[in-house]
């Protein structure tokens, strides 16, 4: 078996493929008007939807504060704080993610930059999830306890130590579970792809190793 024979087979096949795969200018124009179907574009679109939902919550909270119905004011303020923190996180996330653009440099440089950006993005995603989700959970639990205490004619400071023990335990379990979930989720979303790109890069870096 000679390699030239493989070249002949390959080239005769690709020549036919080029022939049948020929696209007219109109076809190309149609393609350019379509949305990119890469997962990156899909994530960008879902970030847009998530930001839309957050803004809806923010408007709802502002409306609640304007209505001046004091029983729900605290919840509206908590919600606004959460939306604000989340918006900061989302804008970071969006900027990080969009640094992963298709590179026009050579494959090795492109892989190096993409893996570096992805690692940073994954770290940011993990930290934000590990802080925001437990914080929001804790705020929710405290608000629930506050409302329940009010219904019984008490304030938070009047709750017995045993009740605080249970509250702290619930918050700790929730925080632990949400941290584990965030780690698993980030790994599931980006882990496989990141590992594959890293493996490709390592293969190319062999050439520069002593």
């Amino acid at each position: 078996m000679e390699f030239d024979e493989l070249k002949t087979i390959w080239q005769s096949h690709t020549a036919t493929l080029v022939e049948i795969g020929h696209r007219s200018a109109a076809d190309i124009g149609h393609m350019l008007r379509q949305r990119s179907r890469t997962a990156l574009s899909k994530i960008n679109r879902s970030i847009g939807i998530e930001i839309g939902i957050l803004l809806a919550f923010a408007l709802l909270s502002v409306w609640q504060l304007v209505r001046q119905e004091s029983s729900l004011d605290l919840l509206a303020i908590i919600m606004l704080c959460f939306v604000g923190a989340s918006m900061i996180f989302y804008s970071w996330k969006y900027r990080r993610l969009n640094r992963i653009s298709i590179e026009t440099s050579n494959l090795k440089e492109a892989l190096s930059r993409t893996t570096m950006t992805m690692a940073g993005y994954m770290k940011l995603y993990s930290y934000a999830g590990m802080i925001l989700v437990p914080a929001m959970g804790a705020a929710g639990v405290l608000y629930g306890v506050h409302v329940a205490a009010q219904d019984n004619g008490k304030t938070l400071s009047e709750l017995p130590m045993s009740a605080w023990g249970i509250i702290v335990l619930v918050m700790s379990i929730y925080a632990g579970l949400s941290i584990l979930f965030t780690k698993w989720y980030v790994r599931k979303l980006y882990g496989v792809h990141y590992d594959e790109l890293k493996a490709c890069l390592e293969e190319l870096q062999e050439s520069t190793m002593p």
């Binding site: 890469t38 997962a39 990156l40 298709i102 026009t104 892989l111 496989v192 490709c200």
Partner: peptide, 30 residues
Amino acid sequence: AYESFKGESKISTWMYRVALNTAISGFRKQ
């Protein structure tokens, strides 16, 4: 990416780069 093509290499080489980068690191859904 066409705007970033500065003519430092052959257009075919540049096109292969973009195509290969898109195919390998283009972040397709797993």
